[in-house]
């Protein structure tokens, strides 16, 4: 199971790096989405995988009965997903605004803030 997850993460990272090398900012952003999902899986895998043992405590008991899944990485992943969602939504809106305003999504052509040395 760990191996499968590791291979999946590897494929995700490889794909995202490929996309992030593109000049098109939108493709870059999609690569970033993939990468953030890969990282979420890393956190999930870091908490060790246990099959079919939800972290629930029975009524009246103070501790779970037997080994359970690690709940902390799940909480971390959830937080990371939420934050990642917010940031990426913002980034997407920003790319859209930039496209509307500058008329390009090619990062090579984005030279407004840093113009090439003007010929005097």
């Amino acid at each position: 199971m760990e191996l499968l997850l590791a291979v999946t993460i590897g494929i995700l990272v490889a794909t995202s790096v490929y996309m992030m090398l593109d000049r098109n900012v939108l493709r870059f952003l999609f690569g970033l989405v993939l990468l953030s999902n890969a990282v979420n899986l890393v956190i999930f895998a870091a908490g060790r995988l246990t099959v079919g043992a939800p972290p629930l405590i029975a009524d009246g008991a103070y501790a779970p009965d037997g080994p359970i899944a690690n709940a902390l990485p799940q909480a971390l992943v959830l937080t990371a997903i939420v934050i990642g969602f917010g940031l990426l939504a913002f980034a997407l809106a920003l790319v859209y605004r930039t496209y509307m305003s500058l008329g390009t999504v090619n990062s090579d052509e984005m030279r407004i803030a840093e113009p090439e040395e003007a010929k005097k």
């Binding site: 939504a89 809106a93 859209y96 509307m100």
Partner: peptide, 14 residues
Amino acid sequence: GGILTLVFALEQEI
């Protein structure tokens, strides 16, 4: 509120 702000803003622009 946060999600709706975002969605309204995006919907309005597109």
